[in-house]
C-alpha cells in the first residue's frame, strides 16, 4: 500500500465521521460508557484482589499446645508445619510476649490496671505459634492437619474474612462481565450502523470507484479508519476520566480512613493503568474493527 493511499484513507475516514456527527457521537458515547464501566470494575476488582492477597499475608492461625507438651514436642510441631506447601511464616510467641500484647490491646494507656497481675502471668502456658499461609484457600486442610498433630491443644483461625472477600469479588466479576458484554454488543451494533450510514451516503461514489477499478481494500479502508477512530476516542475519554477519579479516590480513602491503611492497601494509579490503558485501547479499536467489518461484509461487495 502506498503512503498517499494511507493519507487518503485517513482523510476520508475523518470526513465520514464529520459528515455523520450525530451517529458517530452516539457510538463514541456507548463505547465510552462500556469502557468506563469496564475500567471501574477492573479498578475495584484488582484492588479487592490485592486486599485479599494482603490479607492472606496477615490473617494468622494461632496454635496452642497441651499443658504437658514438652519443648521437644513443640519443636516437632513447628518442623511439621514448615513442611507444608501452603506454609508462609511461623513465629513462636512465648507466654511473656502474649501477655505484653494482651496488655497493650486491652489496657492501652491504663497500664496500671494490669499491675495486679505483675508476678502472676495469667497467660502462663499460653505459648503459641503464629502461622501465616501463602494460600488462604488451603486454610481448612492446614487446620485439620495441625489439629491432628500430637501436643496441639487448640487452633484459632478465622475462616470468614478470606471467604467473604473472595465471594464478593466473584459476584462483582460476574455482574460486571454481564454488563460489559451487553455494552460491547451495543457498541458494535452502533458502530456498524454508523458505518452503514456512511456507506449509504457514499453509495454513488463507491459505485464509481468500483467501475474505475479500485481494489476492495481501497474502498473499505476509509470506513475501517472511521470505525477504529470512533473506537479509540471512545476508549480514551473514559480512561482519562477514570485516571482523574482514581487518583482522587485513593488520596481520599487514605486520608479518611487512616486507621485502615494498615489493613487495606490500595494499588497505585500506575499499577492499575499500566494494564487498563492498553486493554481499553485494544478493546475500543477492536469494537471499531468488528463493527465496521460486519457492515462492510454486508454492504460493500464488488
Amino acid at each position: 500500500m502506498k503512503v498517499s493511499t494511507i493519507f487518503y484513507s485517513l482523510k476520508q475516514g475523518f470526513i465520514n465521521i464529520k459528515r455523520n456527527k450525530l451517529f458517530s457521537l452516539a457510538s463514541v458515547g456507548t463505547i465510552a460508557a462500556c469502557i468506563f464501566l469496564m475500567g471501574l470494575f477492573y479498578a475495584v476488582l484488582t484492588n479487592l484482589q490485592h486486599i485479599v492477597e494482603t490479607a492472606e499475608e496477615t490473617v494468622s492461625i494461632v496454635i496452642f499446645f497441651d499443658e504437658e507438651a514438652t519443648d521437644e514436642q513443640i519443636e516437632a510441631i513447628g518442623e511439621n508445619i514448615k513442611k507444608r506447601a501452603e506454609f508462609g511464616t511461623i513465629e513462636y510467641i512465648s507466654p511473656e510476649q502474649a501477655w505484653e500484647e494482651y496488655k497493650q490491646e486491652y489496657f492501652g494507656d491504663n497500664q496500671e490496671l494490669a499491675e495486679g497481675f505483675k508476678d502472676d502471668n495469667p497467660l502462663a502456658n499460653s505459648d503459641s505459634y503464629r502461622v501465616t499461609l501463602n494460600d488462604l484457600s488451603m486454610q481448612d486442610a492446614f487446620v485439620t492437619f495441625v489439629e491432628n498433630l500430637e501436643g496441639v491443644r487448640k487452633v484459632n483461625y478465622s475462616d470468614s474474612t478470606a471467604d467473604t472477600l473472595n465471594e464478593f469479588g466473584r459476584m462483582i466479576g460476574y455482574i460486571s462481565m454481564a454488563i460489559i458484554i451487553i455494552l460491547l454488543a451495543v457498541g458494535i451494533f452502533l458502530i456498524s450502523n454508523t458505518i452503514m450510514i456512511g456507506i449509504t451516503v457514499r453509495k454513488e461514489e463507491i459505485g464509481i470507484m468500483k467501475l474505475m477499478g479500485a481494489k476492495d481494500f481501497f474502498i473499505r479502508a476509509p470506513f475501517m479508519v472511521e470505525g477504529i477512530m470512533i473506537g479509540l476516542v471512545g476508549a480514551l475519554i473514559p480512561i482519562l476520566i477514570l485516571y482523574i477519579i482514581y487518583k482522587r479516590v485513593i488520596v481520599f480513602i487514605l486520608e479518611q480512613f487512616n486507621s485502615i491503611e494498615s489493613v487495606v492497601s490500595l494499588l497505585s494509579t500506575g499499577e492499575v493503568f499500566a494494564v487498563l490503558i492498553p486493554a481499553a485501547l485494544i478493546i475500543g479499536g477492536g469494537i471499531g474493527v468488528i463493527g465496521s467489518m460486519i457492515t462492510m461484509r454486508k454492504h460493500l461487495k464488488v
Binding site: 502506498k2 498517499s4 487518503y8 479500485a214 481501497f218
Partner: peptide, 24 residues
Amino acid sequence: FRLLKDRNVYDNIAFAQRVVETPT
C-alpha cells in the same frame, strides 16, 4: 455523467487516479 457533485472538475478527474493509487 456520474460526476461527484461535491468535488470540482480537477478533483473529479484526480479521483479516478486516486482510486487506482496513482502517486500525487
